[in-house]
C-alpha cells in the first residue's frame, strides 16, 4: 500500500498525518482514553506503523513483528486479533482502528465489551456461534505454539468439560448469551482482555508530553 498523507487542521504545529489519522479529541470522546492518552498511543502507533513498510499504517507483518519479534511467524490468535482490529477490512490497521480496538482492552472498559470482542475472536468462522470444533482447533493451535503437551484425549476432555459448563442449551455451540453467562462465572476466561499498560500509557510513552496541545 502506498503512502497517503493528509494535512491536519493546524499545520503550524502538527506533523503531517498518515492515512486514517483521526483527531485525538474525537477518539477520546468515543473511547476509554483521555486526549493525552490518545496522543501517547499515537507515539506507539507511529513506531509500529513504520517498523517495516514506512507508510504509517500497521500491516499484519508489523503486528506480528511487535508481538513476536519476527514478521514471519503466523499465529492463529494474533491473526484473529489483527482481523478484528482491522475494522474497515482493508488489510491494515489505521490509527482510529488501533485506538478504538485497544480501548476494549483498557482495564476500565466494560466487561460486556470485552466479552463481545472475545466472542468474535473465538468465532473463527464467523457463524455467530463458538462451535465445539472451533474451540478444539484453538486449543490445538495454542498447544502447537507452546511448550505445553497434552494428549488428544486430554484435549477432548478439556474441550468437552468447558462446553458442558458453557453450552447450557446443549446444542453443541455457544451463542452470545451463553458466552456472557459463562464469562460471568469464569471471569479469568477474559484475563487476556485487560492490558494494565493502558492505565499508565502516558508514563510508558512520556515523549508525547512535549507535543501535546491539550490539558485533559
Amino acid at each position: 500500500m502506498g503512502c497517503a498523507w493528509s494535512s491536519s487542521s493546524s499545520p503550524s504545529r502538527r506533523q503531517r498525518r498518515a492515512q486514517g489519522y483521526e483527531e485525538p479529541a474525537v477518539l477520546a470522546a468515543e473511547t476509554s482514553f483521555t486526549v493525552s492518552e490518545v496522543e501517547a498511543l499515537y507515539e506507539l502507533y507511529n513506531k509500529l506503523s513504520y517498523s517495516i513498510f514506512k507508510d504509517g499504517l500497521i500491516h499484519k507483518e508489523e503486528f506480528r513483528l511487535a508481538l513476536f519479534r519476527t514478521s514471519e511467524r503466523a499465529n492463529l490468535f494474533a491473526d484473529r486479533v489483527f482481523h478484528l482490529f482491522d475494522l474497515k477490512r482493508n488489510g491494515v490497521i489505521e490509527f482510529g482502528e488501533f485506538v478504538r480496538s485497544l480501548s476494549i482492552f483498557h482495564p476500565k472498559a466494560l466487561v460486556s465489551d470485552k466479552a463481545a470482542f472475545a466472542f468474535k475472536l473465538y468465532d473463527l468462522r464467523g457463524t455467530g456461534y463458538i462451535e465445539k470444533e472451533e474451540l478444539r482447533e484453538m486449543v490445538v493451535a495454542l498447544l502447537d505454539e507452546s511448550d505445553l503437551c497434552l494428549s488428544d484425549s486430554a484435549v477432548d476432555e478439556i474441550v468437552d468439560n468447558t462446553f458442558s459448563q458453557a453450552d447450557t442449551n446443549g446444542d453443541g455451540r455457544l451463542d452470545p448469551r451463553e458466552w456472557e453467562e459463562f464469562v460471568k462465572k469464569n471471569p479469568t476466561s477474559l484475563r487476556n482482555m485487560s492490558l494494565p499498560y493502558l492505565q499508565d500509557i502516558t508514563t510508558t510513552f512520556p515523549s508525547f508530553a512535549t507535543h501535546s496541545e491539550v490539558n485533559d
Binding site: L48, L67, N75, F77, L102, M138, A154, Q165
Partner: peptide, 25 residues
C-alpha cells in the same frame, strides 16, 4: 490435573493474545 482447566483460560495463554508485547516492542 489437566481436566480441571477451562479451555478458554488455556487459550488465554497464547502469545498471540498477549498484546502487552506491543508496548514492549
Amino acid at each position: 490435573e489437566p481436566v480441571a482447566l477451562n479451555a478458554f483460560e488455556l487459550i488465554s495463554m497464547s502469545a498471540g493474545l498477549n498484546l502487552g508485547n506491543l508496548f514492549d516492542s
